[in-house]
Design a protein around this nucleic acid. Structure first.
Length: 396
DNA sequence: CCTCCACTGGAAACCTAGGCTC
DNA sequence: GAGCCTAGGTTTCCAGTGGAGG
């Protein structure tokens, strides 16, 4: 036993052979130099600069797909702004609306960052949205805060009757002598379409589009990071090239590319290799995908898992009606409530977004219109997750 | 060119769990 | 405790539809 522990620890010590500074590849790491984003950085800085002499900067909207550097640029600039602020009146805050979950929890996060009076602290639930917004405004006004708020994945805040964004963008006199500037970040390029035109006109006072990185740019970014992260000579150029090519074919997502490189390093380290070769990248790529699927599957509600199991009975694919029948049987067997077909159809659409299931709408002419459904989870992963839940084991 | 299937997907209403104020 | 509030999941209702077979 002691021997095994020693072997593991010794291996870990030797692992130092590959990594020099693993942090340079961690997801939270924001390099102070963002290559190929100089123009965007300059633009954001220009828009926000008036804050330094006490006037309200325009609201700003940043667009672009995931991993194009929007978040990194925004955080870099507000960080610099904060450090250059001699008046100490500027306050910057970064909130990711999707990670927060709901509109209310996003507001909760914002309020957390503000100096609220003790009795005005926001509870986790129970208050009306407008009450929370009111308290936030009050805190900004009372303390004359020059508030620059970065709302990442702002699309999650937009729904049918949202006037929260409207209130935020028009806070104006309500928060004087403080002010509130919104920097919105959206992955969804069609985000503007669903937006109330009044909100759009004030939120989009300034706009900036981030194009995906090209494979060549990714290669250069990776090479730069790898130089810091790995010891010299352990990472051949071909490895970087493959890594960039894999991520490049997946819409130029730099975050994914960097993740891939880090995991490949860990894989190579664990296997005791002296170099991170192309094989390690391939293994890392598989692992990333498997982990993503398992993680998503794991956190699914019980009903959704039953639907997945129902889908797994049709290896050749199926359609909504057939799947619903199979689902109904399983749900009865495990004596949970049987959801309606409308709901199951909705859940299938959600699972499709998660990439666990492929649910494409197809027309079969006279024989109607339905979703062609195919499970995108391999049997091993599925079996592992089912194995964790005794209630599910009976169903297979 | 028309029909008509087997659904899709929008909209609204309903329900529950949690928390507020008085 | 009564009477409010909200978020989030669900049901109910239903108009709408792509395209193979007529």
């Amino acid at each position: 036993m002691v021997d095994t522990i020693d072997t593991i620890f010794n291996k870990a010590k030797q692992g130092r052979v590959l990594f020099q500074d693993r942090n340079a590849l961690s997801p939270e790491f924001i390099p102070d130099h963002l290559p190929f984003r100089e123009v965007q950085i300059a633009n954001v800085a220009e828009v926000l600069a008036p804050a330094l002499h006490g006037s309200k900067p325009s609201n700003l909207l940043l667009y672009g797909k995931t991993g194009t550097g929007k978040t990194a640029v925004a955080r870099l600039v507000i960080g610099k702004l904060q450090s250059q602020d001699d008046s100490k009146q500027i306050m910057t805050l970064y909130v990711n609306s999707r990670l927060a979950g709901t509109e209310y929890r996003t507001l909760f996060k914002i309020a957390e960052g503000l100096p609220l009076d003790e009795e005005k602290k926001i509870p986790l639930t129970g208050l009306s949205i407008s009450e929370v917004v009111g308290r936030i405004f009050q805190a900004i006004q009372k303390n004359a805060i020059h508030f620059i708020l970065v709302l990442d994945e702002i699309d999650y805040l937009v729904n049918a009757h949202d006037d929260t964004l409207y209130q935020f963008t028009r806070a104006g006199e309500q928060v004087a002598p403080g002010f509130l500037t919104i920097v919105g970040i959206s992955n969804d390029l069609r985000f503007k379409e669903g937006l109330d035109p009044r909100v759009l006109s004030s939120l989009g006072e300034e706009e900036l589009v981030f194009a995906p990185y090209t494979t060549e740019e990714l290669r250069s970014i990776l090479a730069e990071r790898a130089k810091v992260a790995f010891k010299p000579g352990v990472i051949p150029e071909a490895t970087i090239n493959l890594c960039a090519a894999l991520a490049g074919s997946e819409h130029g997502d730099a975050r994914r590319a960097v993740d891939l490189l880090r995991i490949a390093g860990e894989v190579a380290e664990r296997e005791g290799h002296q170099r991170v070769d192309e094989e390690s990248i391939r293994k890392a790529s598989d692992k990333v995908e498997r982990d993503r699927v398992e993680e998503a599957l794991h956190s699914l509600p019980f009903q959704n898992k039953i639907i997945i199991i129902a889908a797994s009975k049709f290896s050749a694919g199926t359609n909504t009606g057939e799947l619903y029948l199979a689902y109904t049987n399983l749900a009865r067997k495990s004596s949970v409530e049987v959801l309606t077909q409308r709901r199951v159809s909705g859940i299938l659409a959600e699972l499709d977004v998660l990439g666990l299931v492929e649910a494409a709408v197809v027309s079969k002419g006279r024989r109607g219109r339905t979703k062609r459904i195919r499970l995108l989870i391999d049997n091993e992963t599925l079996a592992r997750v089912i194995g964790e839940d005794a209630r599910l084991l009976d169903l297979v």
